[in-house]
Nucleic acid binder design. Structure first.
Lengths: 338, 338
DNA sequence: TTGTACGCGTTATCAA
DNA sequence: TTGATAACGCGTACAA
């Protein structure tokens, strides 16, 4: 059986109240008594029960995280960075994967609500969905949205996708590309919307004609994006450059390109989103729109801690992180015959 | 404020005991009353408090997982698969990263103990360390070790690394390689030990002379393994083939190879451990010793659930999963001048 | 079949 | 400065 505070008190010859005061470092306790209690604690190997503490104090010191898929390396990096910060503040993380499925997202939120987490870091598969919004509100606790743009009271940490995307387009246009394909997710979420916006801006400022057929924004999923890349490459007037507007799309892009026997950058230029070992070590190395997921995790965690600590900032804060374009050898001028 | 069972009972005009019995589906309760209580539940949106339930029932329905680093894709895949099984059984996962640091491992175990998890899936940075072993024993709950070989009472799920490694060596020897370099982790843990064993067996059965200088088993870390690969390639009589004996070593191997300007498989053959997008999409695609991490996660989770459910098997069960050698274009005969 | 009351391990209030 | 005691929300033995 577990050793309780009662046994500690008994062994130290004091009341449970006094023992508790020693644990929690209260001032009004005699030095001699404190000593006795501490000895009893280490002698018995006592550790306070988190459950009982939570019950009494009303706070579980648990944080929920819901991401699309923990096996996506940048998301894992985000989680790890957030965990470092939260662990240091004596919070424990409950991590789960929504797979961008509405019903799963709702189920996971319900589970975390039952667990009475003190805060939540999450994405959402549809910013405009009233039921999802209501569910977040109903939880009635601090929420930090990851790369989502939604009504208060949730805070948000986001990337300036449009800026990076616009740079990417301009940089491709600068070497002669006039038809650039973009594959990204459903525009019901910010990162896809912002990337499309950046793409448009980039085209405009480069004097490119905007062909809607070149923008495929249906889903962030790997399988679906493979289809989209293939579709773009199969167009009668195919793009000479491709941009993967999703953090887990690069493998699909490379597969689509290779299945058509195209070479990079000879036949086609390619730019990915989010850096990765794959992008760096591909032959040739792939250009990417990049940002620091680790810093995102740290800041997101801190934002949540502030909010839990009852900071007095208006709700719905948005922190936007910069993106940068890293040009590698996957980009070059288009073929002459285009 | 949170809605409690008391309010439900009051609204339904029954006692808390009756309300509780309805929640838990007890038999002896009149249909009409059950109906009234259920209406009150949905009207008030009541959800039982997990904390209070845990306190009362003595079980938190939480499982701890400690892995080296969640950003390693195969480990993330393992965690996700385990989570699918455990989530379905209404368990919640607490995931943390030890980074293979002894003190962190101990600290994380202590934290999970305080949280009173019902079970634990973990690796350990040193199987022989008596303090780590004692710490696991002291937790006094079901533990499933991931790819570790340690004394009972922990169960283990492991891979047949030696089999795969031996095949890899023989397959390289078959095309003419006589000096094959191996980089793996410290032999204080099973996977490194087993790989070295498989390497030796492979050399023996292929009639290769065993040169200890070709075996580098210091650490699984990426940084360290880069150093080891570089060292091997810098030998006066360097190996003509390299085997990466760690799940996160492939990037380091590729970097070391490229920094010396060597081409694969022309100058050097390469085989990795654990499949990945990087291995599949590299140019050329990299051969790997592979196994299913997802199945590992599912079986590991099930093993733990069985144990928690009080199954009557002897402690210290070991389940060994097969490994297979996937040959890709990263392997070929050695250069003539060797 | 239902209600009452206790206890799970803490912390906080109040009285001594 | 310390001790006794009441919560926190729930499940259940026991009594009715």
């Amino acid at each position: 059986m577990r050793v309780t505070i009662r046994e500690v008190a008994q062994r130290a010859g004091v009341s449970v109240g006094t023992a508790s005061r020693v644990m929690n470092g209260h001032a009004n306790v005699a030095a001699a008594i404190r000593e006795r209690v501490q000895q009893a604690v280490s002698a018995l190997g006592y550790m306070p029960s988190f459950m009982a503490q939570s019950m009494r104090r009303g706070g579980t010191r648990m944080i929920g995280i819901i991401v699309r898929d923990i096996t996506i390396p940048v998301l894992a990096g985000f989680v790890r960075a957030a965990q470092d910060v939260l662990q240091a503040a004596d919070y424990t993380l409950l991590i789960s994967c929504s797979e961008d499925i509405r019903s799963r997202e709702l189920a996971l939120m319900a589970q975390l609500a039952r667990r009475q987490v003190d805060g939540l870091i999450m994405t959402t598969c549809d910013e405009a969905d009233p039921e999802l919004l209501a569910a977040r509100k109903a939880m009635n606790l601090p929420v930090v949205l990851l790369d989502r743009e939604a009504p208060a009271p949730s805070d948000s940490i986001m990337m300036a996708h449009a800026v990076g995307m616009s740079r990417a387009v301009r940089s491709l246009a600068a070497v002669g590309h006039r038809r650039i394909g973009l594959v990204t997710g459903d525009t019901s979420v910010y990162p896809a919307r912002d990337r499309v916006r950046g793409y448009r801006e980039g085209c405009e400022s480069s004097g490119l004609v905007l062909d809607p057929a070149l923008i495929r924004s249906r889903s962030f999923s790997e399988d679906q994006s493979f289809v989209e890349f293939s579709t773009l490459l199969g167009l009668r007037d195919p793009p000479t450059a491709l941009i993967a507007g999703g953090i887990s799309m690069l493998p699909a892009a490379l597969r689509a390109v290779r299945s058509r026997g195209l070479s990079i950058p000879g036949d086609l230029s390619l730019i990915g989103s989010a850096d990765s070992e794959l992008a760096m070590l591909s032959t040739p190395p792939i250009s990417v729109i990049r940002w620091s997921y680790a810093e995102l995790g740290r800041v997101g965690a801190q934002l949540l801690l502030d909010r839990i600590g009852g900071i007095d900032a208006e709700a719905g804060r948005r922190i936007v992180f910069p993106t940068e374009l890293i040009m590698r050898e996957s980009c070059g001028p288009p073929r002459h015959d285009h």
